[in-house]
Nucleic acid binder design. Structure first.
Length: 224
DNA sequence: ATATCGATTATCT
DNA sequence: GATAATCGATATG
């Protein structure tokens, strides 16, 4: 049963192995209502879900193992802290859409909008466990097959996972995660993490003490 | 194993 | 003009 997608639980080290595109195509997408909540609830609930790009032989997929919640207006570390701007407009729209931004002038980061329209919470995707399309991910990351055997280098880190999935702002900002046909979607194979660790968000200077980072305990794919 | 630094641009003060 | 939700390279213990 090691590779079954039907298992409903898994240990932290072994989340079920690789998944074939035909199987991924049959998994249900996570519905809009899932995202229509406070990001502090959405973030831990996203752990174990699967981010999927494309279809057929080109399918890329990774299990979400690390995320951070950003609370919108009022959270000084959030891009939406001071209201609507051209960059963060997606966050003020409906939940379950991709917010992609450029950071430090060269790296992209991926989030999903949360909460009802007009309330700008979001969840940052920080690390994935690669499940399908590993060769394409290594290629996108510009690393060799040999290097890519390190579990963290393919998609362990918010900018790394964007490189691995070829996620950019012009291409992907605003895409709907909840449509079965979407190029970028989130699906559920029933996997539920055994244990979740909560800690401080990484790399921020404002409100650094808030416990809004969540990851699957023991996962080798978490960014640090 | 940990520390420091440079890259490069959108956004805000 | 300063800062930033980062990464990879380099240096050093």
């Amino acid at each position: 049963m090691r590779n079954s997608s039907l298992r409903s639980r898994g240990t932290s080290r072994d989340t079920g192995g690789l998944l074939r595109p035909e199987l991924l195509a049959r998994l249900p997408v996570v519905a809009r209502g899932f995202y229509d909540r406070d990001p502090r609830r959405v973030a831990p609930a996203l752990l174990g879900k699967i981010l999927v790009r494309g279809s057929g032989a080109r399918t890329l997929a990774g299990r979400i193992v690390e995320v951070e919640a950003y609370l919108g207006t009022g959270d000084l570390a959030a891009h939406a802290a001071f209201g609507l701007t051209p960059r963060n407009a997606v966050l003020f729209g409906p939940p379950g859409h991709a917010y992609v931004y450029l950071t430090y002038g060269l790296h992209f980061c991926l989030n999903t909008s949360c909460m009802p329209r007009g309330d700008a919470g979001c969840v940052l995707f920080r690390a994935l466990e690669p499940l399908a399309g590993l060769a394409a991910m290594a290629s996108g990351r510009g690393i060799s097959h040999f290097q890519s055997r390190n579990p963290r280098v393919l998609a362990g880190g918010p900018a790394r996972l964007c490189q691995a999935f070829a996620i950019t702002r012009p291409r992907d900002n605003g895409k709907d995660f909840t449509s079965k046909r979407s190029d970028l979607r989130i699906v559920d194979d029933g996997f539920v993490p055994e244990k979740i660790v909560v800690g401080k968000r990484i790399g921020i200077t404002k409100s650094p003490e808030l416990p809004l980072r969540f990851y699957i305990a023991g996962s080798e794919f978490v960014s640090r």
